[in-house]
Write a protein that binds this DNA or RNA. Structure first.
Lengths: 337, 337
DNA sequence: CTGTTAGCGCTTTCAT
DNA sequence: ATGAAAGCGCTAACAG
């Protein structure tokens, strides 16, 4: 394992000069620079990362917090962010909170021990007041999250509008009894969507009906359960808005199994535009989220904060969502138009 | 930002004693220990990670290489490995090679610059001879991969057997013209599966027929294409083995669309046991892979190597795969037995 | 049981 | 344009 000292010796120069070459500093004559580079190659030298970090007080590593990876939405977020980070010369440490405030808090120490230059929160499990003190140690950027109290940048998607256009679409198809599904995370995402859902209903003069509301639907299995709960109602809904394509797929799968035809007897709209939406029969109408753009922007903001060292400022960046109409809300022939 | 020095001063002791407390070393009297802990709490002290790494020559960080995250198989691998790592006090840096040998090689420098204690390769893009020199800088463990030349531990799944039981299942259902799909990665996984497929055919005295072989099927879209290629054959297959549930789903989706009934006219078997297998209609017969066990074992082996410092030794750990029979290979009534 | 001291490998003033 | 030297924060001989 060769060090900068070895390189300096071999090149017949000082450590300082070698360091200058490594960091592309000016004031190094061309011939010395060549000497150094040759020595580095000859020794297969690579600077020691811990030593650099200790000295320069930066690690070029960013921590990304997600509840879990095996949720397609978060997989995509991680994938996009890793690509963006790599382009900027940053590494990504993945932290799965698994919805646990303790785990989240524990991972936060990465910032305090200076193992990472910043934290991107794609999930918040603690009250902001608990997280805020960590701002003394480095930047925190919210991604796909939002908190009224948080005085930090927030890069997010316009969930209110997303739910609004999806619901409006159902209303335009003539539906008036529309069920509503969401997961019950403490995240703002779910509540923003509910706002959008209610807004669309309101425009049509329809009251939000609690008997049609299912706030514990996360996975496809939950979708199956919700389907049964819906058809058991005395006056079942004719359409259902869901907060995820998996739940939508679960509902459709169960509907198929029980001879309930989608969309004729029950229209279904999903969320996320995952691959499954094109594989189910019928294909699923859904809301597309520009996850990669959001991830890229969040990373860009993160890096800016790392450099500017001004962490405690609220900034909100919002991206629009797009409705994608498929067969699960419009009968076959019409969808092809 | 307080340092160990601050803690020492506040406690009226030396840095050494504080360090001993931090690292749970023996020979510290109970009262001094309490003094130190109190001082640490009072200052909100956390040891600086770079300084520790520089001094102790370890980072407690492991790099995990995957081609990409948004492949459900790899998502699960990352998820499982992150959990295992966290339990052992390790962080995980994610490296997406995106099937590029250059990117892979570049990420390998993490080992050389001592930014990570070891590398888990869940994907190999370079010849082993190219990777081997990095063993001078730290351990490399293969996970879900295997290389004849690699003199390092390999934790893998018995792909030969997996493909064998899946194919045998089709043969037992009476199929004799069985198509074969795989992705064409340089990975051993695909070739091992082909071995298993061929072995099953051989047992039934059937020759591998190249016209039924599709070696460029990765995603659901490829499945759709393969479906059309299959039915265009003069003597189309009655069953198809695929290397992934997505491809299987694509085939089934397209078959449904074209009035080709599964499994009656075409039996389909997938691979991975992803959620989609239970959502499609018909549900998909598939091969379950114990990804979490593999990830856990790989991490365990990695940590053992980090401690033992003996990297260049071949060890193979193999986990069995399991066939899960659903509707896509057996007509409805029978599957319920 | 506790403290003194010497670095780990690097970057960065400050001279020259 | 180049080098000498200090020190980032921590751990581990070594001495007592």
């Amino acid at each position: 394992m060769s060090t900068i000292e070895d390189v300096a010796k071999l090149a017949g120069l000082s450590r300082t000069t070698v360091s200058r070459v490594i960091n592309n500093h000016p004031y190094v004559s061309e011939d010395k620079r060549k000497l150094v580079i040759e020595a580095m190659n000859q020794l297969g030298y690579v600077p020691n990362s811990s030593a650099r970090s200790l000295r320069s007080q930066k690690t070029d590593v960013i921590a990304l917090f997600v509840p879990r990876i095996m949720n397609p939405f978060f997989s995509q977020l991680v994938e996009s962010m890793e690509i963006a980070a790599a382009e900027q010369g940053y590494q990504l440490i993945i932290c799965q909170t698994r919805y646990s405030p303790e785990k989240e808090l524990n991972y936060m120490n990465l910032l305090k021990m200076k193992q990472v230059d910043g934290v991107v929160l794609a999930s918040i499990q603690n009250d902001w007041k608990v997280l805020e003190p960590f701002l003394d140690y480095g930047p925190i950027v919210l991604c796909n999250e939002f908190d009224e109290q948080a005085n930090v940048p927030s890069v997010m998607l316009d969930q209110v509008h997303g739910a609004y256009i999806a619901t409006k679409h159902l209303l335009e198809q003539g539906h008036r009894r529309i069920a509503y599904c969401r997961g019950s995370t403490r995240s703002n995402v779910a509540s923003h969507r509910e706002l959008g859902f209610r807004k669309a209903l309101a425009e049509y003069g329809i009251e939000f009906d609690e008997q049609y509301a299912f706030r514990d639907a996360f996975h496809s299995e939950d979708g199956r359960r919700v389907f049964h709960q819906m058809i058991a109602l005395s006056n079942p809904p004719t359409a259902v808005f869901t907060g995820s394509d998996e739940v939508a797929a679960g509902i459709i799968s169960e509907a198929n199994k029980h001879g309930c035809s989608v969309p004729e007897q029950l229209a279904v709209v999903g969320f996320d535009n995952q691959e499954i939406t094109e594989l189910m029969k019928p294909t699923i109408t859904t809301v597309h989220q520009p996850v990669d753009k959001m991830a890229q922007k969040a990373l860009e903001v993160m890096i800016e904060k790392i450099h500017s060292r001004k962490y405690k400022q609220r900034e909100v960046y919002e991206f629009p969502l797009k409705l994608i109409v498929r067969e699960s809300t419009v009968s076959n022939k019409l969808a092809k138009l």
